[in-house]
Design a binder for these strands. Structure first.
Ligand code: ZN
Ligand code: ZN
Ligand code: ZN
Ligand code: ZN
Lengths: 171, 171
DNA sequence: GGTATGATTGTTATAGTATAACATGTCAAG
DNA sequence: CTTGACATGTTATACTATAACAATCATACC
């Protein structure tokens, strides 16, 4: 589902730069389209709840707690019990369409679903924006450190808390 | 509080290699001694609860949940309400004597308190051992990734889940 | 179409993690 | 001895997450 104007699209060219001003309507619509394609490809179903949860996560470059999502869902006529939110979030995470931000006990939409990527996150404590950063070099360094003791990495959590450019100015 | 036999002491020479067999009695006693020195240096107090919590965390190279610690404390005559454990754990974390493992919602003793170190953790899902790994290169890579978007890192969470050497053999 | 099958959602109940707020106790400085 | 700062104990509550089962929906097959 790659589209034709990659060079002109901040949301596609630098999807990890959530801090920069960009055409977010496009940014999120694109992520949603890619998600739909991916799910179809795998023969899975992006059901109404799942799709709506993804849309909610895509509204902003933030992380939302499961109960925040649940409140939204309930207000829209979906079930209002925790498993409704957690199941949708778990599905999205398993399919690489959302990520869990452990420092925040919250979830954020994946900004480049489908692309194999070891996720690293930049979390601004000023504006709460969460950005995905290119993490291949980080993973390589971590692999190297682990390899020294013969440890084999299966999954990793890499999160940085700090200030985005705008919030540095404000401070 | 560096001592004299650094070359002969696995617990000191390679404190990040919690997976390897080593003289853990020494390993933990040494960490405790360093912690005491550090706290005294800062004019703070390693009170009975705090000291006991650190000892408990030092018993094994594992992470313990706050409620696990609390159960132990209560059995030993300390308070049996959550804040008793959380306050001690928070103190230890603030002083760099313990680390929070976010993936496990648990805490582990710091294996080289006093030394400035950006923590990275290797968590074995087989035996639950948690090791601190040298993380300077990892942090450098993360800083580089963040720097591209002008993000300034203040704190970071770097955790890898996988299998230690022994558990790879077992599998 | 009708039905068997598995996947999805809804619901109840409960487990696990963490903090706010206030009372009590300890200790050292003045 | 009093004072003030810090530390601990306690009550209550908030927040995060999952187990277990019932009802519903979608699909494939006859
Ligand atoms: Zn965007
Ligand atoms: Zn910001
Ligand atoms: Zn040890
Ligand atoms: Zn192991």
């Amino acid at each position: 589902m790659a589209h034709s104007h990659i060079d002109a699209c901040p949301g596609c060219e630098a999807p990890d730069l959530a801090f920069a001003a960009h055409d977010h309507a496009h940014c999120s619509a694109d992520a949603l389209a890619r998600a739909e394609a991916l799910v179809a490809e795998k023969g899975l179903r992006l059901t109404p709840v799942r799709r709506r949860v993804l849309e909610i996560l895509l509204e902003e470059h933030r992380a939302l707690g499961a109960y925040d999502v649940l409140t939204r869902l309930a207000a829209e006529g979906f079930g209002n019990q925790p498993p409704v939110a957690y199941r949708a979030l778990d599905f999205l995470e398993e399919q690489g369409l959302a990520h869990r931000i452990r420092r925040l006990n919250a979830f954020t939409a994946c900004m480049h679903p489908g692309e194999a990527h070891a996720p690293a996150f930049l979390i601004c404590r000023g504006c709460n924006v969460v950005a995905e950063a290119p993490a291949a070099p980080v993973m390589a360094a971590l692999q190297a450190a682990a390899g020294q003791s013969g440890f084999v990495i299966e999954r990793s959590t890499i999160e940085a808390l700090g200030l985005c450019p705008s919030c540095q100015v404000a401070a």
